[in-house]
Amino acid sequence: MSTNDSLTFHWQDDDLDDDNFQIRHNTRLYMLVLFSIILLVTIIFFLYSRCTISSRASSTTSSFYHTSPPSSQLRGLNAAAINSLPITIHRQALSNTNDTTLECTICLGVFEEGEKVKVLPVCYHRYHCECVDKWLVTHSSCPICRTSVRVDSPF
């Protein structure tokens, strides 16, 4: 024998043929069951995490409302208190150059000469009457500085 023949290696196509590879019915069934179990566990985990997150959020929200001030302080002013706020006529010549006196910070509309504006008594911020009236129905503070507008009676 020669040395060239011993070094030559011949591949046979029969060795690489995968016709013998078969997935039988039992294997398909096992793969389907395994996939179903993984899908079921994923869905259960997703639902569990949603429930725990929503229960934490509701407990946080309920604890917030229990520690917050009474609901009477969260409401706005009554109609009589809103109507008792002073109304002035806007004069461009008398106004400062401060932006808060030149425009309503609720609607962002510029005050026109001779327009009626409401002045809050404590902080002296000015607003259109309609704008601040809508605000004060639900809030009892100034929209800019959050100073309380509520006037408590001495009784």
Rank of each mutant, 00 (worst) to 15 (best):
L16M: 03
N20H: 14
R28M: 15
V117R: 09
T105K: 13
M1F: 01
L136P: 01
V110G: 04
D5N: 07
L34C: 07
V132R: 00
D99C: 07
T101Q: 13
S84A: 15
F111H: 02
H139I: 01
R24Q: 15
F9K: 11
I87V: 14
R75M: 12
L77D: 00
I87Q: 07
T147W: 09
D17C: 05
F111N: 02
T52P: 01
I144G: 00
Q92R: 11
E112V: 02
S49M: 06
T67Y: 13
L39N: 07
A79L: 09
T105R: 11
S62Q: 04
L120A: 00
I144K: 05
S63Y: 13
D13W: 05
G109D: 13
C131K: 01
D152K: 15
V137I: 10
V110W: 01
F111R: 04
H128W: 04
D19E: 11
C51D: 06
L39D: 04
S6E: 11
V149L: 06
R28A: 15
H25F: 14
D5P: 00
M1G: 05
T3Q: 09
H128Q: 04
L108Q: 08
V122Y: 12
S58C: 03
T42H: 05
H125E: 04
N98H: 15
L32Q: 14
L7W: 04
S153A: 10
R91T: 03
R126C: 03
V137S: 05
I82M: 01
R24S: 14
T27W: 09
T101S: 11
A57T: 03
Y48M: 07
G76W: 04
S49K: 12
A81Y: 02
L94I: 06
C131Y: 02
S95D: 02
S84H: 08
S6Y: 07
F45T: 10
L32H: 11
T3V: 11
M31I: 12
V33E: 14
V117C: 07
N4V: 12
L7H: 06
W135H: 02
Q92D: 09
D152F: 09
V119F: 00
S141V: 13
D17H: 01
M31P: 00
I106L: 11
T100P: 02
L94H: 04
T100W: 12
S141C: 11
D99I: 15
I89L: 10
P154N: 12
V119R: 06
D13G: 07
I37L: 13
N96L: 08
C142L: 05
T67M: 09
S59K: 08
R75P: 01
I43T: 06
T147F: 10
H139C: 08
L34A: 13
I144N: 06
S63I: 07
I106F: 03
L85K: 03
S62I: 03
A57L: 11
V122D: 08
G109F: 10
I82F: 03
C131V: 06
I43W: 07
T100A: 13
S63H: 13
T61S: 14
E113F: 02
L16F: 11
I106E: 05
Y127N: 05
F45L: 09
N4S: 13
I87G: 00
A57F: 10
L29P: 01
E112N: 08
T105P: 03
